[in-house]
Design a protein around this nucleic acid. Structure first.
Lengths: 248, 248
DNA sequence: GTCGGCAGTTTGGTCTGACCATATGGCCTG
DNA sequence: CAGGCCATATGGTCAGACCAAACTGCCGAC
C-alpha cells in the first residue's frame, strides 16, 4: 500500500480538551457569543487541571475563536467569537519570516486574491465602503505623509477593497497575505530613491483602481490591480536579493 | 481625525513573552531547526513563570512554528519548524463551523485559488507529482471505494495539484480552504441520490483535469477546474439550505 | 431620595513547587 | 561484546495560592 506509516504521537491532555471543545463547536452546541463555564468549574468537569484547560483555551484564543475577559458581568469570562483576521495575519507573518513561503509565492497569491477582490468590489461594493477607501487615498496624497503611514494606509486601502467585495474569506486572506509582506514593503519604500515620485505613481494607480471599481468595470480593475501589485513586488525582489534561497 | 479610539487592553505576560520570541524570529535570530532553551532555563531568564512561558509556547505551537518533544537527545526540546498547514486548516475549519464565512465565500475562494493552482501546475508540475495525483484518481475509480474514502482522495487530489504548482502559499491556502468544507462535502456525498453516477461524473472531470495539466494547457485546466468546483458546490448549497443566514 | 464611593464577588492571570512521562546516554552485568 | 537497567534531561500535568480586573450592591453623605 502506498500509505506511509505515521508515528502515533499520543495525545497530550490539553489536546484532548481542545478536541472536546472543538466537537461542541462542530456540533453547533457552541456558537459565537456563547460563554464557557468558568475555568475553575470546567476543569474538574473535564477531569483535567486548570493549567491544561488553560492551554487549550489559549489555543482557541490564538486562532481567534475565543476571547477571555476577567471580572464580572455579561462580558466577563471566556466567550466564543469570530475574529480570524489577527490570527491569520500572525500566522502568515511568522511563517513568511521563517521562510516557509517565497516572495514570488506571496506575490502570486496576492495577485490571485486581489484580482478577485477588485472584480467583486466592482460588483458589490457599497458607496460608503468606497467612500472610506477614497478617504484613505486622500490621506495618502498629502505630501507630508511619512513612509510608515503611507504603508499603513496602502495596506488599509487594499484591505478595505477586499472587505467591500462582500467576501469575508477572501477579505481575511487578502489582509493576512498583505500583512505578511508589510515589513518588506516598508523597507522597500524607505529605500526608494525618489520617494515623492514613487508615492505619486502609486497614488495615481490607486485612484484609477478606485475609479474603475466605482464604474463597475470589474475586469479592468482586476487587470490594473494585477499590474499594480506585480509592478510593486518587482521592486521588492530587487531589495531582497541578498536574502538567498530558503532552505528546504 | 477619523481614527477611532481603541481600548488599550494591557498586555498579559504570556503575550509579552510571545512578542519577545516573535521578535527573534523576525530578526532572523531564530530560524527553522533552531532549538529554544529548556523551559526551566528560559522562564527565569525572561523573568516570568514557567506557566506563562508555556502558554506562549503553546501559541507558537498552534500556529505551526514550534514543536515540543520530551526526552533527551538532539530531537528533544522545543524546536522551530515550518508547518503552517495544520494550523491554517484548523483555523479555517473552526471558523467555517462558527459561521465566520458563508459557503459562497468559500466557493469563490476555492475557485480563485484552484484556478491558479491548476494553471500553475500545467506550467511547473513535475511528472512524479502528477503520477502521484494519477494514483489517487485510480483509487477513486474503484467501484468499491466508500464515500468517506472518496472524499479523502478527492481532497488529496486537489491538494496534490496545488502542491505540484510549486507555490507553497497557495498550496497551503488551497488545502486549508478545502479542508474547511470537507465535512459539508462528505454530507453531500452521503446524501447523493445516485452515488455511483455522482462518483463517475467527478472521476471523468478529474481525469480530464489531469490530462489538461499534463498537456500544459493551463488556461483550459483552470476553466474546467472552476466548472468542476462550481458544479459541485451547487449541490452543497442545496444541502445546506436549512442552515439559514449567518448572524452578523 | 440620589449620588458617590467602598467593599464584596466573580472571573481570568500568574506564580510556585512538586511530581509524572518520555526518550536518550551510559554504565554495568552476563 | 550484547543486552538490560539506571541516571538524566526535558516537556507535561497537577494542586493550591495569590493577584488583578470588573461588575454588584450596599451604605453613607448630602
Amino acid at each position: 500500500m502506498s500509505v506511509e506509516w505515521q508515528p502515533v504521537r499520543q495525545s497530550r491532555t490539553h489536546e484532548l480538551v481542545l478536541e472536546s471543545i472543538e466537537q461542541r463547536v462542530f456540533a453547533g452546541e457552541l456558537k459565537a457569543g456563547d460563554r464557557l463555564p468558568p475555568e475553575r468549574e470546567l476543569a474538574p468537569v473535564l477531569g483535567v487541571s486548570r493549567s491544561a484547560l488553560r492551554e487549550a483555551l489559549r489555543v482557541l484564543e490564538t486562532i481567534g475563536v475565543l476571547v477571555a475577559q476577567a471580572g464580572r458581568g455579561p462580558d466577563a469570562g471566556a466567550r466564543i467569537v469570530r475574529n480570524p483576521d489577527d490570527a491569520l495575519g500572525r500566522l502568515l507573518r511568522l511563517h513568511f519570516a521563517l521562510g516557509s513561503y517565497r516572495l514570488e509565492d506571496v506575490l502570486e497569491a496576492r495577485v490571485v486574491l486581489e484580482r478577485s477582490s477588485f472584480a467583486a468590489a466592482a460588483e458589490h461594493a457599497s458607496a460608503e465602503d468606497l467612500d472610506e477607501a477614497e478617504a484613505l487615498l486622500v490621506r495618502m496624497q498629502e505630501p507630508s505623509v511619512g513612509v510608515a503611514e503611507f504603508n499603513d494606509l496602502d495596506t488599509r486601502f487594499h484591505v478595505q477593497i477586499a472587505r467591500s467585495s462582500g467576501n469575508q474569506l477572501t477579505s481575511t486572506l487578502t489582509s493576512a497575505v498583505r500583512e505578511s509582506v508589510r515589513p518588506l514593503i516598508l523597507r522597500a519604500l524607505e529605500a526608494a530613491e525618489d520617494w515623492p515620485a514613487t508615492a505619486d505613481g502609486l497614488n495615481v494607480e490607486h485612484a484609477e483602481l478606485l475609479r474603475l471599481v466605482r464604474a463597475g468595470q470589474g475586469a479592468e480593475a482586476a487587470d490594473l490591480a494585477e499590474k499594480h501589485i506585480r509592478g510593486f513586488h518587482g521592486t521588492l525582489v530587487d531589495e531582497k536579493d541578498e536574502g538567498g534561497e530558503a532552505a528546504g
